[in-house]
Simulated assay, not measured.
Amino acid sequence: MSVEIITKEDLMQFKSKLLTEISKLIKPSEHQGSRQWLKSAEVRKLLNISPGTLQNLRINGTLRYTKIGGTMYYKSSDINSLLEGGNHA
Rank of each mutant, 00 (worst) to 15 (best):
N56T: 11
T53K: 10
Y73T: 02
H31A: 13
G69A: 02
L46S: 12
V3G: 10
H31S: 15
E84V: 01
S34A: 15
E21T: 09
H31T: 15
S34V: 11
I5D: 07
D78Q: 05
K45Y: 00
L82Q: 03
E42W: 01
L47S: 03
N60I: 14
R64C: 08
S29H: 12
L25N: 12
I49H: 05
N48V: 09
Q55P: 15
E4W: 11
L11E: 08
Y73L: 03
Q36W: 09
N56Q: 10
L19D: 08
D78N: 07
G61L: 01
G61T: 01
S29K: 12
M12S: 14
R44L: 03
S76I: 01
S76Q: 09
L18V: 14
R44I: 02
I79M: 02
L54K: 01
E9H: 07
P28H: 01
L18A: 12
Q36E: 14
L54A: 04
G33I: 05
E9M: 06
L38K: 00
M12F: 12
I22C: 06
L47C: 00
S16C: 09
T7V: 05
K45G: 09
G86H: 12
K45E: 03
Y65S: 03
L18I: 13
A89F: 15
E30Q: 06
A41D: 11
L18H: 14
K15E: 04
E21K: 08
M1G: 12
Q32Y: 13
M12G: 13
G61R: 01
S16T: 09
L11K: 08
W37M: 08
M1F: 05
N60M: 07
N87L: 13
L46K: 04
H88C: 12
P51S: 03
S2V: 09
Q13W: 13
Y73W: 02
Y74V: 00
S50V: 15
K75E: 06
E42Q: 04
L18W: 13
E30D: 10
Y65H: 03
K39Q: 08
I49M: 07
E4H: 10
N48F: 07
W37A: 01
R58F: 15
R44D: 02
